[in-house]
Design a protein around this nucleic acid. Structure first.
Lengths: 225, 225
DNA sequence: GTCTGTTTGAAACATACGTTTGAAGGTCTG
DNA sequence: CAGACCTTCAAACGTATGTTTCAAACAGAC
């Protein structure tokens, strides 16, 4: 039992520190001292720091992609034949994320922050790892999005998907800080689930927005259309 | 003239490398060898690596915030009395960014990528520096957003602004990579200006989206609208 | 031309990093 | 009990980082 305990303690500490500070800014010594294990344990159990980063992602991405897969199965079954709507697709995704068994109350926001970091910090090895390990559920999500927005050109859809990813990854990656700010400023308490409930309509409206604007509004002070 | 040349060469090299690789991942030795100056020059002219990062931001953020300020002045004058619309406010911002005199053709995307990094990489010193140096134009933008969306509750507006920031910062922070991917996949060439032209309607539609969704779509396969 | 203050240069500084080593400790099988 | 294996540990390795040092080169003023 002892060896598995060390592995988990390292993963827990690494996950939290990576989410707080990023990958390059987190040293193995920080991780091992937070996890209360020997420095060499990381290289012994994982091989390298990069492999540890991969393991941190794999620990929640693997069960999550399984959950997501069955969620999409159910959704497509319910729609039999008909392609699921944009709202349904987005909800299937966020529900799967929110419903995932969490290690602790910060689980979901750590999860989101790590995903955001994975996209943002230009760590080549991570991008490669995620692409070849989780291309299937990602590709399925993209396919559903495409079928739910047949009115969009490929180029429009491409960019709008990036906008969605950005809004989601960014917001979720700093959800803790944003929730605190909101509470201090307006005295309102919020959960990650509520953020998701606000995010989905925002994203859906953005995806369904009228065409790309080619010219800025007229200078007369009245907006076009 | 020689001293100023060194300073500029350092700033140019630092700007480009920071945008490419992030702050922690860029060493002073990379910067000085790209700039073809002595290693000690950075500490001589700027004092420290952090101060260099601040200088890189100040070099374009100071003229930009001035440009933005007059753009907002003109906008409010055109609207005399009436608060500017959401579209107008967003356009004033993106136009100011795009119209800034660029040092080279990559200027605007480097600018955007750095702004994205500033938000994403949790570099405490940078955040503090930006907040106390550029709080005024930022606050003015927020005020305009508030007046342009009177129908939103404070809480809704707060979250939707975060969603906008996220979509923008995230997309722009990897705009180069995203442009490359799009060209390889669909053979379409894009400019940052075009991305902005697609982003603004997406953001505006999201801000004006119908209310926060409290319940996921019904399981019957029909969305509750 | 010489002097003064500023800028460059090569080298070293101390520190932190990821990784490796080899011995010590522990556990389970035979 | 002995032996084989897995795990931990303290220490060291080599390398890279940001920063400092101090002498040399340079500028413009007198």
């Amino acid at each position: 039992m002892a060896q598995s305990d060390t592995v988990d303690r390292i993963l827990d500490a690494a996950e939290e520190l990576f989410a707080e500070r990023g990958f390059s800014e987190t040293s193995l010594r920080m991780i091992t001292s937070k996890a209360k294990v020997n420095l060499a344990a990381v290289n012994y159990h994982f091989g390298s720091k990069n492999a540890l980063i991969h393991a941190v992602f794999a620990r929640f991405l693997t069960p999550f992609s399984a959950t997501l897969d069955t969620a999409f199965d159910e959704l497509e079954e319910r729609c039999d034949g008909q392609p699921p709507t944009l709202n349904q697709t987005l909800w299937a995704l966020t529900e799967s994320a929110v419903r995932m068994p969490q290690r602790n109350e910060k689980g979901i926001s750590i999860f989101m922050r790590l995903l955001g970091l994975a996209y943002t910090q230009s760590q080549g090895h991570l991008r490669k790892f995620l692409e070849q390990e989780y291309s299937e559920p990602f590709g399925r999500f993209m396919r559903l999005l495409k079928e739910a927005t047949p009115e969009l050109s490929s180029v429009d859809r491409y960019w709008r998907i990036q906008f969605m990813l950005g809004a989601t990854a960014f917001t979720m990656s700093s959800s803790d800080a944003l929730i605190d700010i909101l509470e201090n400023k307006l005295g309102v308490e919020t959960t990650v689930q509520e953020i998701a409930a606000r995010l989905v309509p925002f994203l859906a409206a953005g995806m369904k927005a009228p065409d790309k604007m080619l010219v800025p509004p007229t200078a007369s002070g009245v907006s076009v259309a």
